Deep mutational scan, measured.
Amino acid sequence: EEEEKKKEEIARLLGVSKEDVERILKKNNLDIEQLLRRVQREN
């Protein structure tokens, strides 16, 4: 699934687990696209 791939990509870029990414998304109330763009910009 596309969303899972995005979570895995974010996890890889941040050096965290996919579960961490899911927690970040919930905690910050971000959607996956916003987080992915933010992470890609910083790297």
Rank of each mutant, 00 (worst) to 15 (best):
R23V: 12
K26E: 11
E42Y: 06
E2W: 12
E33L: 05
Q34K: 07
L14E: 00
E8C: 10
E1I: 12
K5I: 10
R12S: 05
I32M: 05
L13K: 04
D31L: 05
I32Y: 04
G15E: 03
G15V: 02
N43G: 11
L13I: 14
R12T: 06
R41L: 13
I10E: 00
K18L: 11
E1S: 14
L30W: 14
I24G: 01
L30E: 12
I32S: 06
L13F: 05
E1M: 12
K26L: 14
S17D: 05
L25C: 09
E19S: 11
L25R: 02
R37P: 01
R37L: 13
E8Q: 12
L14V: 01
L25E: 00
E9S: 06
S17P: 05
K6S: 06
E8S: 10
Q34E: 15
L25I: 08
A11L: 01
E2C: 10
E9W: 15
V21I: 08
L30C: 06
K26W: 08
R12M: 08
K18D: 02
R41S: 14
K18S: 05
L36T: 02
L13G: 01
K7W: 05
V39E: 02
R12P: 00
I24L: 12
N29W: 04
A11K: 01
L36D: 01
K6G: 05
E33R: 04
I10P: 00
E19H: 09
E3G: 09
E22W: 03
E9F: 15
Q40G: 05
A11Y: 01
I32F: 04
E33F: 05
E4Y: 06
E33Q: 05
E19P: 05
Q40M: 11
R41P: 05
Q34T: 15
K27A: 14
I10S: 01
K5L: 12
L36H: 04
E33K: 04
I32G: 02
E8D: 10
V16E: 01
E19W: 09
Q34I: 08
V21S: 00
G15R: 08
E33P: 02
E42V: 09
N28R: 10
D20W: 14
L14Y: 02
I24P: 00
L14D: 00
R41K: 14
E9T: 13
E22S: 05
E3M: 14
E1D: 13
K18N: 04
R23E: 11
L35G: 00
L13Y: 06
L14M: 11
L13S: 03
E9A: 10
R38C: 08
G15K: 07
V16T: 06
E33N: 13
D20T: 14
Q34V: 10
E3Q: 13
E4L: 08
E19C: 11
N43H: 15
K5S: 10
E42D: 10
E8I: 11
I24H: 03
K7R: 06
L35V: 03
R41D: 13
K18H: 05
G15S: 05
D31Y: 03
L25H: 01
Q34D: 13
D31F: 03
E42L: 10
E42T: 10
N43Q: 14
K6M: 15
R41E: 14
E3R: 14
E19Q: 13
G15H: 07
E22R: 03
K5A: 14
N43F: 13
Q40I: 12
E1N: 13
I32R: 01
D31E: 07
V16R: 05
E4T: 08
E8Y: 12
E1C: 09
E2Q: 10
D31P: 04
E4V: 07
A11V: 03
L13E: 02
R23T: 10
